[in-house]
């Protein structure tokens, strides 16, 4: 992909900029996004606060006051223009051909029963047996495109459309932490107990949000994950091990 031809930069107010690359959702675009994140974080400009990747963009938060006072002598009219120029520099350093290390993280899941009350719903909706739903869900590698919604919650790509199922008509008040769900063509894992409308097919003993660790989440944008089926007896063992 010719990155230079596919960049859009726009302001998000006076203290952030969104750098979008290409259109839509694809592993190739996301690969460039993760490279761009790496370049920005490797050598942050003065006034940089943080950068947040999404499917096809990086949002960079900055302090315009720092940038303004540091560049008063230069010809640049605004902090936004200055940051746009920094972004162009970072983009030049990105080589999309360059391979990067990609972690593959295994997520243990107990499917069905009280842990996955909607497994039957997903099976019925797709004219499959519960076992077929589990096999299809297990038989794929998923890409972590971004973390959001709640801390450590991964937005995953790569789910098989044969198990796609619409959200519940009325959301549940509380979905337990670790619940594995399906919403439309997406699958995800609840990192905190929150209300939610996803169809819950299983639960993982893995902790996705680790506020006292660095980094504070099990998964990061750019990782890949695989699900691994475990039995109920193993759940508590995992709970103790996976901290």
């Amino acid at each position: 992909m010719d990155i230079q031809q596919n960049i859009k930069m726009r302001s998000l107010g006076d203290s952030a900029i969104v750098v979008q690359i290409g259109e839509g959702i694809s592993p190739d675009i996301h690969h460039v996004i993760i490279h761009l994140m790496t370049e920005i974080e490797r050598d942050p400009f003065h006034g940089f606060i943080e950068a947040v990747p999404s499917y096809n963009s990086v949002t960079v938060y900055y302090n315009p006051v720092t940038i303004y006072f540091e560049n008063q002598q230069s010809q640049v009219n605004s902090a936004f223009q200055k940051v746009s120029a920094f972004m162009e520099e970072y983009i030049k350093r990105v080589n999309p051909e360059e391979e990067r290390e990609q972690r593959v993280i295994e997520i243990p899941v107990i499917y069905g029963g009280e842990y996955g009350p909607d497994l039957g719903v997903v099976a019925t909706y797709n004219s499959l047996t519960p076992e077929e739903v589990i096999d299809i869900h297990l038989n794929h590698e998923y890409m972590v495109y971004m973390i959001g919604f709640s801390p450590g919650f991964p937005f995953l790509g790569g789910m098989d459309e044969r198990i796609a199922t619409p959200r519940k008509v009325s959301p549940r008040q509380a979905i337990p932490q670790g619940s594995v769900g399906i919403a439309g063509k997406q699958t995800g894992i609840y990192s905190l107990e929150t209300p939610g409308g996803w169809q819950i097919i299983g639960r993982s003993p893995a902790s996705l949000f680790l506020p006292n660790s660095s980094p504070p989440t099990l998964l990061q944008a750019g990782d890949k994950i695989r699900f691994k089926q475990i039995e109920e007896e193993e759940f508590s063992t995992y709970k103790e091990e996976v901290i």
Partner: peptide
């Protein structure tokens, strides 16, 4: 600040 990329 610094942990928005982790959903914080």
């Amino acid at each position: 600040y610094g942990a928005q990329k982790y959903g914080v």
